[in-house]
Design a protein around this nucleic acid. Structure first.
Lengths: 188, 188
DNA sequence: GTCTATACACTGATAGAC
DNA sequence: GTCTATCAGTGTATAGAC
């Protein structure tokens, strides 16, 4: 029953999604989470880096589950994947163009300065790619094709989120959805 | 002849490419650029935000020129575009997975907190997309198709850079190159 | 487990001399 | 144009009481 710990992790994830790693201070995390101030280094002896790694892992896991359940809804790979991407577009719009998860931002900020966080992000991305690759294997794809195409799907989604946030529009992600569907059907 | 000013801008661009906006301090910029310390607010009265906007614009312009010259080398859109993306992969590798430009990182960090920087990034991305769209119009694309596909190309490249940096491999961008070439040929 | 207090470095920014 | 000095605020992290 570590609900205080959970609150800290959840708040960290939300704040870093909005403003990134370095702009998010521990004081703000404590304040926003309403958690007891003295408990941060009790729960996370590794300090900000450890706390961030946990927040990223949790956020990554939630997204992973959302991917899985979305892809299970429709059998056709092209259709289910483009549906999922459209859902991401909607999510980014409804968040006021502040959504899209904390991983991309933190990854770019820390990939050159924190081996721990870089590896955490790498593992999260790899997990997502694997799920898409498995779905593609239900179509007429070779394992290599599926892996390659799944990588491109994640790349285009992440890049699409960036374009949506900077352009304040969900359209880039919808164009990703449309064009990737075409590409997937090419094979299948 | 504002070479001190140029040095500051160049250093800002490099540092932010590596570690982002909030981790890059003005003191570090002054120190690394070897520029006179007192001149920063003389050249950039708007402070860090103005300096960053100039650095992003300069970096964006350089990339824009590189895109143009690359796409001019080969007539076939699919081939020239995938060649360019392979060049990006090589560049990221040779930089020790620290390259890829400052725009993406700063965009994610500040899109929700600085309207000025968000708009700067948006304009830069739009310029890149336009150049790719023009190239695609040389093939058998409708204007809408070209614009849509160019958007996906930029998204996949930006996302590919993220995957390359976190995974310390140039392969994701090469997979982007391969699959986008297939997608482009689908139309042309 | 949680608290307060605090150490110490650093941030962006400004003022005023030269 | 460039300098030094300095502002007020914030950063992460730690110590020690309770």
């Amino acid at each position: 029953m570590t609900t205080a710990r959970d609150q800290i992790i959840q708040t960290t994830s939300t704040l870093m999604e909005l403003q990134g790693y370095h702009a998010t201070g521990l004081n703000q995390i404590i304040k926003d989470s309403g958690s007891p101030k003295g408990s941060l280094y009790y729960y996370f002896p590794g300090g900000k880096e450890e706390l961030t790694a946990e927040a990223l892992n949790r956020a990554g896991q939630i997204v992973l589950n959302r991917i899985k359940s979305n892809l299970d809804l429709v059998e056709d790979p092209a259709e289910s994947i483009s549906n999922f991407i459209r859902n991401v577009a909607l999510h980014v719009e409804l968040s006021g163009y502040q959504g899209g998860g904390p991983i991309t931002t933190v990854a770019m900020e820390t990939s050159a300065t924190s081996e721990r966080l870089r590896e955490a992000c790498h593992r999260i991305y790899s997990g997502w790619i694997e799920v898409f690759a498995e779905k593609l294997l239900q179509g007429r794809f070779s394992p290599e094709q599926a892996q390659s195409l799944a990588t491109v799907i994640i790349a285009a989604i992440e890049g699409g989120i960036i374009l949506c946030r900077t352009g304040r529009s969900g359209d880039p992600l919808r164009q990703v959805a449309d064009n990737l569907a075409i590409l997937i059907r090419q094979f299948g």
